[in-house]
Design a protein around this nucleic acid. Structure first.
Lengths: 203, 203, 203, 203
DNA sequence: GATTAACCGAGACGGTACGTCACGTCTTTAA
DNA sequence: TTAAAGACGTGACGTACCGTCTCGGTTAATC
């Protein structure tokens, strides 16, 4: 499980060095990530000041910057931390898997607050090489469950062996992002059904 | 032609009111929009300071804030102002229209500087009702050329009359946005061909 | 009759030139001086903005600056305009004259609002040659009534012929200014009596 | 020792509180007060901008506003800080004391730069309760040396026991202020001599 | 137990941008 | 020519935030 490159993973440090001196306070990482998510969701990433965050958690700013190199690194970590992994969908049929997965995706996209953070990270990543890499990782990770569903269906023969998986993933996932960020159109069951009908007309 | 809600359209005002007092300096709007686009592209929207912008255009900050209520309103207006409308594509066939249109879209997405501004506006629009409305307008406008192409093809019988146009537009356009903003994958000819093959398999 | 050097006196202009074009609106000078005094008294000279003043009088800023070269010139003119000249005191005795004059001076200093403007003019006059000259004129004028009283008393023999008038005036008037501007001590009848007892012990 | 109400006196805080956090940079208060006096003297209080002041001292504006709530509070503090206390005059006779003290007062009033700041503070104090209190303190303090001289002379019998000290102080000091701020008349030895001859004719 | 090194809170620091405000000038149309 | 309206450049204001630094004071592992 992904020790991100932007945050210093406490556990990882513990195992490789004896670490003299006072150890980092337990639970502070957790508390900060949670509070970051809350605050960023409430008032936006730009609206969230590090001073306020520190005060709310009862921590000094130095303590934050000892753990993350910048506000954005913290925010990205908070975003990654917030993902409840999709529990592995496996109904036995492509139809069933898609219904389950895309239904939950639509629901998350519609109600999930965390996504409000994404635009900020996208913006900063335009100028920040480091952050862009982390963001790419994050994005790739989010595609994995659907990729598994597709590939399993190919294995079962429900989809042709020469299916263009990458583009298929794009065509399925990106409309969700697009509607969430840009057009603000609804993502209801009807939308999901029509999208599947379009890109996977056979089933 | 869309007089946006965020900027005061000089022409519109001229026609409805006698306009007393010293009129707005001619060309300043134009110069500011252009410079905004340049600066925002060079250093990012956040990196662009209103003081520097004013100085570069040879204008006072007050003059800017007299025209736009905030930095974001200005940036959005600059973005809308920057769109060179797609010249109407009409090769006679859906195949030809798509090749032309999507080719240019891919090229713009890859090299177009303006898109760096989009993420910033997306972020702010999450919290700013007004801006979100303007952004929605902008997005809808950008979809129009492709919609025309599709509907023309339906008229010619190249596409079935019950084609789900809205979702089809989503499925075609959003992967470009997705790759531009999130996955940073390439948008070459190969990608375009494969995407079309997926969503419009017949053609 | 106080045609100040800082303001263009409407009457004076009328008599020396035929003045082509639209004549200056009558009463505007008066209205501006009055409003200036009011505003400056309400919110202080610094707190009074020319825009607000213009709006309140229903006049454009250009109209003001056509009449006075600067805010301070206007304010000074307003101050001079506001002085109700002391009606000539002449009771026949020094004692009586002083009682009357100093009593009214104390009352004006205590309740007069106009004096709040003085400190501002003093400050600006430090850096403004022109204004300082005008202010000096104003000050000298204010001393005149008391000077007359003293000199009349000398003529009557109530005061020795070698009385040091200038310093005597200083010693009498300046404590009023001092208490008004700096120490904020009271200026009641008792104070007047004691001051006279000090500088004019014989009477 | 005058811990002013407008500035946070570092020493005072140290003794009463444990002082957590990074301590205020040493010498910055001093440097700011000095530079303020210089700048205000050079270009006037209004002509002195906080940005320039900060830059000249090599300090950020926030650092200034952390120490004083406003420009005026800073300026007043600078003024109080600048007073070189009159070394206690004691020649043994009233005559000698007055010659010494008033001579220096006249010299300071004539050449002293600090007094240019006073008019500004007077103006602001009209609207600012807080500042007025501080200014009153300052004024009272400045009167003290002369008060001592007078009272000592009373003790020696050089002045009658029922001398009206307060009004006497007014009558001596205020003409200096008056000439400095308003009439701009000279304050030479002759003036001092004549003033003393007037208010203290016996000696 | 003493040392030591990293931690902790608080909060001051330099830098930089923000959006507002006022002054005095300039440029329109209307009278 | 003057008037009202109001845009203009200049430049200061005081606030906010970032990321760094500096205090005095813990808190373990090492000596």
């Amino acid at each position: 499980m992904p020790a991100t490159t932007t945050s210093v993973d406490a556990a990882a440090e513990t195992e490789c060095a004896p670490r003299r001196g006072r150890p980092r306070s337990a639970g502070v990482d957790e508390a900060l990530l949670t509070a970051t998510l809350e605050l960023a969701t409430e008032v936006g990433v730009n609206g969230m000041s590090m001073d306020v965050l520190a005060q709310r958690v009862g921590v000094s700013k130095a303590t934050i910057y000892r753990r993350w190199p910048s506000k954005e690194a913290l925010v990205l970590d908070a975003l990654q931390h917030a993902i409840k992994p999709f529990e592995q969908v496996d109904t036995g049929t492509l139809r069933g898997d898609l219904d389950l997965y895309l239904g939950e995706l639509a629901e998350r996209m519609t109600n999930g607050s965390a996504s409000d953070i994404l635009p900020h990270l996208i913006e900063v990543s335009v100028r920040d090489e480091m952050l862009r890499a982390s963001l790419d990782d994050y994005v790739r990770m989010r595609r994995q469950p659907l990729r598994t569903i597709i590939e399993r269906a190919m294995g079962r023969g429900e989809l042709p062996a020469d299916t263009d998986v990458d583009v298929l993933l794009d065509a399925i996932i990106s409309p969700f992002i697009y509607r969430r960020l840009l057009s603000h159109d609804a993502m209801d069951d009807d939308f999901v059904r029509r999208l599947v009908a379009l890109v996977l007309p056979g089933i």
